[in-house]
């Protein structure tokens, strides 16, 4: 795991330095002053030396100072932004997973009925309409025209509803479609027939056998999905004026803000690894055959 992180850090470090430009290049910065700034922030040193220094700081948990916001440390920026993004992401995830799974399950069991078509229509919209379009539409209709919810800002629960809905829409659609396919597949398995032949009640078949098996592939994608959604969405945070982490991933590259690029990338990587670990644990709960502990016994 540490090796993976080290590779990520190294690759990111050298890749970002290969992009043309640097943090202090500006349309009104003379070459002499730029050199002065590069020196002040240690960017005039040979690249390998900067790399060694960075790794040293990283081991102490120090991401350094942002090279765009010269007064702010990357640690502070992540500490301030992540809880906001995480809250928004978890809310989006919560409703995407619940509604998505319910829709997908219903569609799976009521295969080729109007219920199935309706659920898949919703899923189609969710997949084909990007979150920022849906967000903008909601802002205009629900926020401006109807005045039910605030258009933007981040002041309390009411402010989270629209962005979370817009953010979760795509995931909801993926969930619904995957769950439907999965349910259909499991329903045709031999062991379901066996269960029926044994004379188990319909309820028991559905909950103990079908759903439990059908949900496995969903759990698999839940890890990366969660990491993606809780580290913030650039566009959704942008249009709703939410002070999350999402925009840093894009802006840091645009600004050649090296420390922020590395900080956010490493943070994301660590989170991804951690969540994948959680998924493995969750696997064991859903499917005892792949329980971690047992394999060691």
């Amino acid at each position: 795991m540490l090796a993976a992180l080290w590779i990520i850090v190294t690759a990111t470090f050298f890749l970002m330095h290969s992009i043309p430009g640097d943090p202090f290049l500006g349309d009104k910065v003379t070459e002499a002053i730029r050199q002065n700034m590069l020196r002040k922030y240690g960017l005039d040193k040979p690249l390998w030396e900067q790399y060694v220094i960075y790794l040293g700081n990283l081991l102490r948990g120090d991401f350094g100072t942002s090279l765009k916001m010269l007064h702010r440390s990357v640690n502070d920026m992540i500490r301030d932004g992540f809880p906001v993004s995480a809250l928004l992401g978890l809310e989006a995830l919560a409703y995407a997973v619940t509604i998505g799974l319910v829709l997908g399950t219903l569609a799976g069991f009521r295969h080729n009925t109007w219920l199935d078509y309706l659920a898949m229509f919703v899923a189609l919209i969710g997949i084909s309409v990007p979150g920022f379009i849906m967000g903008g539409l909601m802002q205009y209709v629900i926020g401006l025209k109807l005045g039910w919810l605030p258009i933007a800002r981040w002041e309390g629960f009411r402010y989270t509803i629209m962005p979370a809905a817009a953010l979760g829409l795509g995931t909801l659609a993926v969930m619904a479609r995957m769950m439907r396919t999965s349910v259909l597949e499991v329903t045709n398995q031999d062991y379901i027939k066996t269960a029926k032949a044994k004379g188990l009640s319909q309820r028991e078949i559905v909950f103990r056998h079908i759903l439990r098996n059908a949900i496995l592939p969903i759990v698999t994608i839940l890890g990366p999905l969660t990491a993606g959604i809780v580290t913030g969405s650039f566009v959704i945070e942008l249009i709703f004026g939410i002070p999350g982490l999402g925009k840093y991933y894009v802006q840091s590259i645009f600004n050649r803000d090296y420390t922020l690029i590395l900080g956010t990338t490493i943070f994301y990587a660590v989170l991804l690894v951690f969540l994948n670990f959680l998924v493995d644990v969750a696997y064991g709960i859903v499917d005892p055959r792949i329980r971690l502990m047992r394999s060691r016994e």
Partner: peptide, 18 residues
């Protein structure tokens, strides 16, 4: 002063009197 980077959102907020 807000720090909303999007260009359409502030116009909606202006229209809504925010």
């Amino acid at each position: 002063a807000d720090m909303i980077k999007d260009i359409a959102t502030p116009l909606n907020m202006f229209d809504a009197g925010e």
